[in-house]
């Protein structure tokens, strides 16, 4: 890892093709992005433009068909399953549209999960998980199961889980997609606070007003980057 270079993510000509029988879906057709530490990026684009695909590649949940991807100075396109799992565990914090909490586990245990796979001892785990829940203002709900929490609270548990292992980046794919506008704003405030603390955030969103929180907006169309913009311009352009 290079210390003097503050680029966290660098991709070159990243492609992802899905072969469906005789047809090939070109979900990404050569994407070059470069993201610096502590950037707050919004990814926009019409449905099917490849936003989630790009997020999955960046998050090492999936491997590209071709192209290069360097994360924290380390090329990851050729890593094996276990290495990718380790990167997901240490470098990436995911926040999903559908929360993806374990339904039978308490909020605390959900937040503990990444630490379990990092091999952290149980005492330290509980301490850090509680700390993360405090950070999202949910310390008083830590023994609740997901079905005992509101949507906004669930998403805050998911955010606590994403940041508990102090990842290099937080990836959020439409984190407010399932929430009403008031709750959405609440969640966005949490992200803003994380960003102020120095966290690098990449967020997919459909809603223009959400992009106002970001410093930079990447717009995808048909698997290619259409534009890199400052948020205000995008806001003006989108209907």
């Amino acid at each position: 890892m290079s210390v003097d270079n503050d680029i966290v993510i660098q991709t070159h000509d990243l492609k992802k093709h899905y072969v469906m029988g005789s047809e090939t879906v070109r979900a990404l057709r050569g994407v070059d992005v470069s993201i610096e530490r502590n950037e707050y990026i919004a990814i926009m684009g019409p449905s099917g433009s490849g936003k989630s695909t790009l997020m999955n590649l960046i998050g090492c949940l999936d491997t590209p068909t071709s192209g290069e991807y360097v994360l924290n100075g380390q090329p990851v396109q050729d890593l094996d399953d276990d290495d990718l799992a380790r990167i997901r565990n240490r470098e990436i914090g995911f926040v999903f549209q559908t929360f993806n909490l374990l339904p039978r586990a308490s909020a605390l245990h959900n937040v503990e999960l990444p630490l379990i796979y990092a091999g952290v001892s149980s005492r330290e785990r509980i301490e850090r998980a509680k700390g993360a829940l405090e950070q999202v203002d949910l310390a008083d709900r830590m023994h609740h199961k997901p079905n005992e929490l509101s949507g906004g609270q669930r998403q805050r548990v998911a955010i606590a889980r994403a940041l508990v292992n102090q990842p290099s980046i937080i990836l959020a794919d439409e984190p407010t997609g399932n929430l009403d506008s008031v709750t959405s704003e609440e969640i966005m405030t949490v992200f803003d606070a994380l960003h102020d603390d120095g966290q690098t955030i990449i967020m997919v969103t459909h809603e223009p007003h959400i992009t106002a929180h970001a410093e930079r907006v990447i717009t995808l169309r048909d698997g290619m980057i259409e534009s890199h913009d400052a948020p205000r311009t995008v806001r003006a352009e989108t209907v």
Binding site: D82, A85, F94, N100, L113, Y117, A118
Partner: peptide, 16 residues
């Protein structure tokens, strides 16, 4: 299956 997916996304390796 979904639980497995969640665990994997959070860093569970095959052996875990």
């Amino acid at each position: 299956i979904r639980e497995i997916g969640i665990r994997k996304a959070l860093g569970a390796r095959r052996q875990d």
